[in-house]
């Protein structure tokens, strides 16, 4: 409860300022203890995210790029308050987002939703598609009665290019691309302002990948969504994002407009990454 009141106060104070970004992170840190190597010794820690700060303006599309172990997934979990930082804060429109009880975070969950990498595992195999898409509506108390929920489910399924009747089926009856569309529909259902994609197309076939990327771009435009896309693939980020943040060993190597960073990288790691990207002969 105290968290909520202080949160509101901050929001009131912040709303006065003209220069408040939609989402802001300051000094995020997160480490994990490694498995014990001896019974008595201290447990070593791996710093997955060390001192990351970033701002996302409303309507922008930020790409977070890094290789495995760079801390991308941890950073996303921290930004969405799915994990607790060791230090640092996340603010949404100036209001502090504090990881804690699900009920105290409901306001933020209505604003920010996520699409995970692997649609094979991000959908509960024992839940029909309609139930899965309706879940955030029910959990967040957004939709109201049964009819309104069903209507919204049909609406978002149509928006991602699926038939509303498909809601009666189970996830395993769909292809990878269709499943990722379902996951996107689920994220869209509560009308969030921010959509976070954690490697949203990495598990998909190349031809399907382009379709899903186009879908994300179109939704961002029509729904006025702010996008945060995490990827190891520079092509994906170039396709979707106007801002890019290069993450290397848990820290920000470079952060700036996509066009500038990709053509004129300032950090040696960014250069190394760009050189490594396999190219199609023109």
């Amino acid at each position: 409860m105290t968290a909520d009141t202080t949160g509101d106060m901050t929001a009131d104070m912040a709303a006065a300022g003209p220069d408040v970004p939609l989402l802001e992170a300051v000094g995020l840190r997160r480490g994990y203890p490694l498995p014990r190597t001896s019974l008595t010794g201290r447990r070593a820690r791996r710093e997955a995210v060390r001192d990351v700060s970033l701002r996302v303006e409303e309507g922008a599309a930020l790409g977070i790029v890094g290789e495995s172990g760079a801390g991308k997934s941890t950073l996303v979990r921290l930004l969405l308050a799915l994990d607790r930082p060791d230090a640092g804060t996340v603010r949404y429109r100036g209001r502090e987002v504090r990881p804690g009880r699900p009920s105290s975070l409901r306001w933020f969950r209505r604003e920010a939703q996520i699409v995970l990498q692997d649609p094979m595992s991000s959908l509960d195999p024992r839940m029909t598609v309609a139930r899965a898409v309706a879940e955030p509506l029910r959990a967040l108390g957004v939709a109201g009665d049964r009819a309104a929920t069903a209507a919204r489910v049909a609406e978002v399924l149509t928006a991602v290019g699926l038939e509303p009747e498909m809601g009666r089926r189970y996830p395993h009856e769909f292809s990878g691309g269709q499943r990722q569309r379902i996951a996107i529909a689920r994220a869209l259902a509560p009308r969030p302002r921010i959509l976070v994609g954690d490697e949203p197309v990495s598990a998909l076939d190349v031809s399907v990948r382009a379709q899903v990327l186009d879908l994300l771009a179109r939704l961002a435009a029509t729904e006025g969504l702010t996008l945060i896309v995490v990827s190891h693939d520079l092509g994906v980020v170039r396709h979707l994002c106007d801002q890019v943040l290069i993450l290397h060993e848990g820290a920000v190597a470079e952060h700036g407009p996509t066009a500038r960073v990709l053509t004129d990288p300032a950090h040696p790691y960014t250069r190394r990454l760009l050189d490594a990207v396999p190219r199609l002969p023109v």
Binding site: L82, R101, R109, P190
Partner: peptide, 12 residues
């Protein structure tokens, strides 16, 4: 992952 997705969807 679907539990993580549910948490992100606001499920308690």
């Amino acid at each position: 992952d679907y539990v993580l997705a549910a948490r992100a969807g606001g499920a308690g």
